[in-house]
């Protein structure tokens, strides 16, 4: 089970209302390589992986949910004071007529989240390679977001998130090596 903590993993400070930036950030909220996809992917794979890597998938999945909350906070703060006109100008007119000022799991292009973004193969090496790729794609997306954003508060949080994807990728690669070592040892006997 999970217990809610009334705090963010890392502070989110927004400099100005900026619905256009919020729209771009939705890529990491409900997009294919976003935080929701990451959290759900690992949380679902963990049941059938070898015991050695269950902890890692559980812990990284839990952290991804805290990243999701950071993204939600950014999007909320960037749009809460925007008028319908401002939202429309930022390309969020269609979002507004369907969702008002509320958030939704969709990507920067407005495409709703789908489970087809993620996979679970019942093969730990295949799953972990997908996880490594997911982290690298998320890292790249954060880089593009930093490149396009001029909000210093948002960029600070995005840099933190980008570095976390690096660490997750590294840990997943170590997990692959742990499983390969075990497999090779079994062959010897």
């Amino acid at each position: 089970m999970w217990v809610y903590e009334k705090k963010l993993l890392y502070p989110v400070e927004v400099t100005t209302c900026n619905p256009m930036l919020a729209k771009y950030l939705m890529e990491q909220y409900g997009g294919a390589d976003g935080e929701l996809a990451a959290a759900l992917r690992y949380m679902n794979q963990r049941y059938t992986v070898p015991d050695k890597v269950i902890g890692l998938l559980t812990d990284i999945s839990t952290e991804e949910f805290s990243h999701l909350e950071m993204l939600a906070t950014m999007i909320y703060k960037l749009t809460k004071d925007a008028s319908p006109e401002q939202l429309e100008k930022a390309g969020l007119g269609a979002h507004f007529v369907n969702h008002g000022h509320s958030l939704f799991y969709e990507n920067a292009g407005g495409v709703p989240f789908t489970a087809t973004y993620i996979q679970s193969k019942g093969d730990p090496i295949a799953d972990l390679y997908e996880d490594i790729a997911a982290e690298e794609k998320a890292r790249a997306t954060y880089q593009w977001l930093i490149d396009i954003s001029d909000d210093p508060g948002i960029n600070d949080s995005l840099r933190f998130l980008r570095e976390r994807e690096n660490i997750h990728s590294l840990r997943f690669r170590e997990a692959v090596e742990m499983l390969k070592d075990e497999r090779d040892r079994k062959k010897v006997f």
Partner: peptide, 22 residues
């Protein structure tokens, strides 16, 4: 004070992931 909690909790998060694979 909250930032201090966030910092210290983050150190735990980081060591937890590290010890998962070490």
């Amino acid at each position: 004070l909250l930032k201090k909690v966030q910092q210290m909790d983050f150190v735990v998060v980081e060591w937890t992931l590290y010890t998962d694979t070490h």
